[in-house]
Design a protein around this nucleic acid. Structure first.
Lengths: 198, 198
DNA sequence: GCAAAAAGCGGAGGCTGACTCCGTTTAGCG
DNA sequence: CGCTAAACGGAGTCAGCCTCCGCTTTTTGC
């Protein structure tokens, strides 16, 4: 890759990161190009899809999440605590940019983008955490990791949507940790709630 | 309201309904106006916001959901079964148009649109179901109805996103009833899962 | 019936943002 | 230094949102 191209790429990722933080991942790409001092064509050549840019911005973060899952799977004796700890990190991750939780929910079903592929690695690591707990009888076995991710993503989306409207209301804020606790409780094996289903 | 205006209004709602069913609630409004044989200005005069049109399309359906919750609260002895039954209907409702689950998640925090207001009524009825269960010790009391709605909306969004990509994969489809079962299990009181939190 | 007033209509036009295409520029090699 | 592949950039096209206002239709009062 040519030196100038590399420079532009880095600059774009840098600008995108701060733009996402301010305006969410739906920020105008033209605005990002402008702030980075490059033409819109340059942005598109390097990042043909919005998700490619998002993936580039998140790369490091995903690496950490993946590593963390591997470490927890290895060292944490308690499978329940391990998944709890990791899902907490996951939820916090998805909350860093407005709109990210939805993009991730999209990406976990689609490995054709860079974001989808990075998610895959992270999910494989997370899956191991879930499956260890399942094989130990800690978690119910009819649920897969996509299900868990979907629920977590839903939690974050709810928090975002609520945050946008904090002005007008008697409605209390949404607590992601509480909702995560509900989900985790629902995932655990046990006598309660075997029936239900529709 | 003038007779011609009423006619146009009805025609718009009718067309919108089928357009939403085909393309989701993000369908182009200009397309809807065109199909209804009215100008875009007419659509906007009657439905200043997209959500106003959505609310008009859903009006009957919401009425039914509200009534159903009231009936369940009155007649169903079993608070757990009542909420289970109703949330199942709610989830099925949110799945009728692609994108609706997100719009609802937005609307529950914002009574400034027609959709938000209709949701409010439905939610008041649903809240009664939850609170009855809570006062009977069936459900945990640290969760409110917004939380429950948010989780249900997240379930539906996951199903939608998955459905869009059914082509490419070894990934199994998402089962909304299974996820709802997880959430309901998490909502129940009991020894399991009291800790966790972050 | 008719005319005036009120209500409603419609689409041109402005705007924003995605995305493409291609003539121009530049890094980097020999 | 000159050549070439790589990269650049932004004009241009397209789609959709939404507003504005001159024109048309319905309704009302007589």
């Amino acid at each position: 890759m040519r030196a100038d191209a590399l420079r532009n790429r880095e600059r774009l990722v840098e600008v995108a990161q701060s733009a996402f933080a301010t305006n969410g991942i739906e920020t105008s790409l033209e605005e990002i190009a402008r702030q980075a001092g490059v033409g819109i064509g340059t942005l598109y050549r390097r990042f043909p899809r919005r998700e490619d840019l998002i993936a580039a911005v998140l790369a490091e973060r995903y690496l950490k999440l993946t590593e963390c899952a591997l470490t927890l799977a290895e060292h944490r004796k308690d499978a329940d605590a391990a998944l709890t700890e990791w899902l907490t990190l996951l939820v916090e991750h998805m909350a860093i940019y407005r709109g990210l939780s939805l993009a991730v929910k999209e990406a976990i079903h689609d490995q054709s983008t860079a974001l989808g592929r990075t998610c895959k690695e992270m999910m494989d690591a997370g899956t191991a955490l879930l499956e260890r707990g399942q094989s130990l009888g800690v978690f119910r076995t009819d649920v897969n990791f996509y299900d868990v991710m979907s629920l977590c993503s839903g939690i974050v989306t709810a928090v975002e949507r609520r945050a946008e409207k904090l002005a007008d209301s008697d409605i209390p804020p949404v607590d992601p940790y509480l909702l995560l606790d509900v989900v985790l409780k629902g995932l655990r094996s046990g006598v309660l709630g075997g029936g239900a289903g529709g």
